[in-house]
Nucleic acid binder design. Structure first.
Length: 793
RNA sequence: GCCGGUGUGGCGGAAUGGCAGACGCGACGGACUCAAAAUCCGUUGUUGGCAACAACGUGUGGGUUCAAGUCCCACCACCGGUACCA
């Protein structure tokens, strides 16, 4: 009987309680020890409870944290709650319960579920973004940004979710619909708080060189920031105002045959008396405004526009007259809202020119050489770009310019369940920060959480809270009623873990200096342009004001793949393929669940769930538990098995470091197979196996550790096994024999034999020799300890 | 369209240019059992053959190499990101 049933419910609970009682996983404030800060994205405690996807990430970094702890590091592996947010608020509105109550309930459930998995979180450092003692510091950081001019209020066209009745950041609009609820997003002009993330655009690109992120994450961020280089050029007009355009291709300026301005461009309003067809133009403007972003993209192939009659521009390099069009294919929000159109070398301009029968002038030939281009003729287009910028600069008609697609971050939400923005609006003094001594500015207790009909925050109706005095001049004033977006609290939470109870500061200098940066941060790809970008931005700001010790918060970032349903589709209620982790833990145990999720496939790639495969992981755990029955210290372990042990220690250690948890588990499975082949194990080696398995299956290993008296204290806090490089080498090797690259048999022999010696042995092997007999040997290739290949004619 | 990624048995997946399919699931055969489950032993890429063995085989088509899943060129399919960003 090789497997051994064990009562996972009893064993797992027992050790979870024991660890918690002893504070086995508490990070120590001993700042002279080597530290390791492992971090996973803290969850939003939704009403659905934990998803099987959560433990994939948490277990992976738990393994890392546990291994580092066993290697002697002072490890910080914390957990908390990103608890502000819409679903809770919507649930609260629907069921007339305060969102705080809902949040508390959800947190309790999540915490329970996480604890049942045996993750070695330091629960003494638990944080909650909705706790006033926490959001005090979110508000404080906002005020520092306000003081540095990075938080500002602005009348802006914003994305408006028709269902959430709330503005969205660009990053929250996915394919023209709301990221959260999937409803239509329209454009609306509203006065909003903004954060000037664009001021950090270049640094957010440049500093990616300093961090160890997956390449795909770096590229995705770089693409999102969207840097482009070109020039701004002034085109004179017949109405006495220059039209400033942005182009990445100043080399093609001789090919300009018309210009386009966006429907929102102020030029129209300013010169409407000169525009002969102003009635039609305004009609076009109106139609363009009505379109949502979604509609604009849908119709993106079919360009529309209208010519401004009576006005024209002058090409600054050849003084030709250029007609001006209005079209919604030019966006007011990028560049200058106006372009020079070069239909010969731009797809969109070409499409428009063809539709409106505008001339197309070629200025670059097939060999990439400039033609019809005055001073640029004969140059390569890349050189022409440089030359034209210099020329325009010397003439005072333009200058080099860098642009970014990244927009400033819309930071206002018209909802209740978020951090109140700590600003007072005074008629006389304008926007005045709430004094830091009055933080946290708490959410008032209210009963109706629904946003107002016009889209204003429900806080608007709480007159006693809204009406206040100006902190500066004492006059009657009103509080800001917008709250912060969900991304606020998560933009700095990793700092709070370093010193979560601090009342004077967001965390002490010593704690921040010791623990930061996060050594290993794992999270989802979906946060690449949201949380990951936002938090890098905040950290850079905190560096600028002397709080963060360096410019990047996360040294190493990895991304887990999603766990899909059995049908290979994303798990969702509507698809009916959701697996509840509670059921798995209850039936198979946390250790099995953990091993299964690590073994399921490449950690970074998506993997479909398969309930019948879990049995294999459970069998493995039982086979491990059964080792207790075959302990025999009167026998000696074979040297082959000893070698396998050393190899496995090496492999598991390296695989954890390189995120290959699946092959780490596979190598432990192979090792246990070898142990059963031998038929017994010594106490010493059972100890080694137990320690190697401990990060993956912490409960059952703790139980065996104690049952077999493998060592003192917890296995979880014992020393990680070391391997001997010399003992990783087999004494006998198997060498593959090939003739002309085709496999023709194999031989076993000792290591370190020469090519000639191996060849002699090979010739004695019939299945090999029959392919070389009577043939001329051209070449012998020998790869030491692996393969011998005879090339014959 | 552009930018990433991925294509390997019935399935999840392994393979520093060096024996393709480790490890696991499933399936099949056997042992144990009155029987079943569990467990243990064996087989399991395809084709041909009683067999030893042979041929074929990592999305497709070429190429480099003694040797290609792995490197190069061209293409196809799927997934993710992004999209009138001038």
């Amino acid at each position: 009987m090789e497997t051994e049933k064990y009562n996972h419910k009893e064993i797992e609970k027992k050790w979870q309680d024991a660890w918690e009682k002893e504070g086995a996983f508490h990070a120590k404030n001993e700042y002279d020890k080597p530290k390791f800060y492992a971090l996973v994205e803290f969850p939003y405690p939704s009403g659905q409870g934990l998803h099987v996807g959560h433990p994939r990430s948490y277990t992976a970094l738990d393994i890392v944290a546990r291994e580092k702890r066993m290697q002697g590091y002072n490890v910080l592996y914390p957990m908390g709650w990103d608890a502000f947010g819409l679903p809770t608020e919507n649930y609260a509105i629907k069921n007339k319960i305060h969102p705080r109550i809902v949040t508390e309930k959800n947190i309790a459930r999540f915490k329970n579920q996480l604890q049942s998995l045996g993750i070695s979180f330091d629960w003494s450092r638990e944080i909650d973004t909705t706790d006033p003692e926490y959001y005090k510091w979110t508000q404080w950081i906002f005020l520092q940004m306000f003081k540095k001019g990075l938080a500002y209020k602005s009348e802006a066209t914003v994305n408006w979710c028709t269902s959430c009745r709330c503005v969205l950041a660009n990053e929250e609009v996915v394919g023209g619909v709301c990221e959260r609820c999937g409803s239509e997003v329209v454009q609306k002009v509203k006065s909003q708080w903004m954060l000037a993330i664009t001021k950090y655009a270049q640094r957010l690109i440049d500093d990616l060189e300093k961090v160890d992120y997956p390449e795909r994450v770096k590229t995705q961020q770089i693409n999102w920031i969207g840097r482009s280089t070109g020039a701004e050029v002034d085109f004179a007009t017949n109405v006495n105002e220059n039209l400033k355009i942005y182009t990445t291709r100043p080399d093609t300026i001789y090919g300009v045959t018309y210009m386009v301005i966006s429907p929102e461009h102020p030029f129209i309003e300013k010169h409407k008396s000169k525009i002969k067809n102003i009635v039609d133009v305004e009609k076009y403007k109106l139609e363009a405004n009505k379109k949502s972003d979604f509609q604009r993209t849908e119709m993106n192939k079919n360009k529309t526009g209208i010519k401004l009659e009576g006005v024209h521009a002058i090409n600054p390099v050849n003084n030709e007259e250029v007609p001006i069009f209005v079209s919604d294919y030019v966006l007011m929000s990028y560049g200058t809202g106006a372009i020079m159109a070069v239909p010969a070398h731009d797809e969109r301009d070409k499409e428009f020119a063809e539709k409106y029968c505008l001339p197309i002038v070629n200025v670059i030939d097939e060999d990439d050489i400039m033609i019809n281009s005055g001073i640029l003729n004969g140059l390569k287009s890349s050189d022409a770009k440089e030359k034209m910028i210099k020329f325009l600069e010397s003439e005072g008609k333009g200058k080099a310019k860098v642009n970014y697609k990244l927009r400033d971050w819309v930071f206002s939400r018209q909802r209740y369940w978020g951090e109140p923005i700590p600003i007072v609006h005074c008629e006389k003094c304008g926007y005045v920060p709430v004094p830091e001594s009055e933080l946290p500015l708490k959410l008032p207790e209210i009963e109706d959480f629904e946003s107002l009909e016009g889209g204003d925050s429900p806080l608007e109706n709480i007159t006693p809270w809204v009406n206040t005095k100006c902190p500066k001049c004492g006059a009657d004033a009103k509080r800001e009623t917008d709250t912060m977006p969900q991304w606020a609290g998560s933009s700095w939470y990793f700092l709070r873990y370093t010193d979560p109870k601090n009342k004077e500061n967001l965390a002490s200098n010593e704690a921040i200096k010791y623990w930061m940066p996060v050594d290993w941060y794992n999270g989802g790809m979906e946060h690449t342009t949201l949380h990951l970008l936002y938090s890098r931005f905040w950290y850079k700001f905190l560096y600028d004001i002397g709080i963060a010790p360096d410019v990047e918060p996360y040294k190493k970032r990895t991304s887990h793949g999603m766990i899909l349903g059995e049908n290979n589709e994303k798990m969702s209620k509507s698809r009916g393929n959701v697996v509840n982790p509670d059921d798995i833990v209850s039936e198979y145990g946390a250790d099995t669940m953990r091993i299964y999720e690590m073994f399921i496939g490449d950690f970074e790639k998506p993997a479909p769930w398969n309930t019948s495969s879990i049995k294999g992981s459970r069998r493995f755990v039982e086979r491990y538990f059964g080792l207790q029955k075959i302990v025999d210290d009167n026998k000696k372990m074979s040297s082959k098995l000893e070698t396998s042990f050393h190899k496995t220690i090496k492999k598991v250690s390296e695989d954890i470091e390189s995120i290959k948890f699946n092959t780490a588990v596979a190598s432990l499975m192979s090792l246990i197979n070898e142990i059963y082949e031998q038929g017994f194990i010594t106490t010493e080696y059972l100890g080694i196996f137990t320690l190697l398995l401990s990060p993956f299956a912490p409960h059952v290993t703790e139980e065996v550790w104690k049952n077999c008296k493998l060592g003192s204290g917890f296995a979880s806090n014992s020393e990680w096994p070391k391997y001997d490089e010399k003992k990783c080498k087999d004494s006998e090797v198997e060498i593959a024999l090939q003739v002309c690259g085709k496999f023709r048999g194999k031989i076993n022999c000792g290591t370190g034999l020469s090519k000639e010696e191996i060849f002699e042995l090979a010739k004695a092997n019939e299945s090999f020799s029959k392919f070389i007999d009577g043939k001329e040997i051209v070449k012998i290739i020998y790869v030491p300890n692996r393969l011998l290949n005879a090339v014959v004619k």
